[in-house]
Amino acid sequence: QRLKAAVHYTVGCLCQEVEEDKDVQFSKQSIAAISEITFRQCEIFAKDLEMFARHAKRTTVNTEDVKLLARRSNSLLKYITQKSEELASSNMEQKEKKKKKSSAVKGGRAPGEQEASVTENEDSSMA
């Protein structure tokens, strides 16, 4: 229930962005329906990802498995692949930064780094 509530809230926020962007209105019922479908679709994604990883004799799900979820549409696959590359290069940058940091001051991440990666993950899971 707690997870469903979080999904519902996030879907609500995303729908709001669309409302402002496209000048349409979502009824509360339609937002609820999208949330429920998203929640259930996550179960299906999770099972598929597990199977894809196992198919490659891995126990860890990686980005290649995620790309397979988008295999039915070239447009979607291209979008996800692009996002995945962005994520990979930003991870590289972070590693570089960490190397520099660890030699200088012991500290946490730079503000904003964590948020950026989470948001991108969210994008790909919502697609």
């Binding site: 509530a5 979080a6 519902h8 809230y9 996030t10 509360k28 019922q29 937002i31 609820a32 949330s35």
Partner: peptide, 27 residues
């Protein structure tokens, strides 16, 4: 919406990550 009513008590703000200054939903 009944779906919303049912879930409202379960929402924890630390679970959601919304960038930017969004108008919060009534939920």
């Amino acid at each position: 919406c009944s779906y919303e009513r049912e879930l409202r008590p379960h929402l924890r703000m630390e679970d959601v990550d919304i960038p930017g200054n969004q108008r919060h939903l009534s939920t």
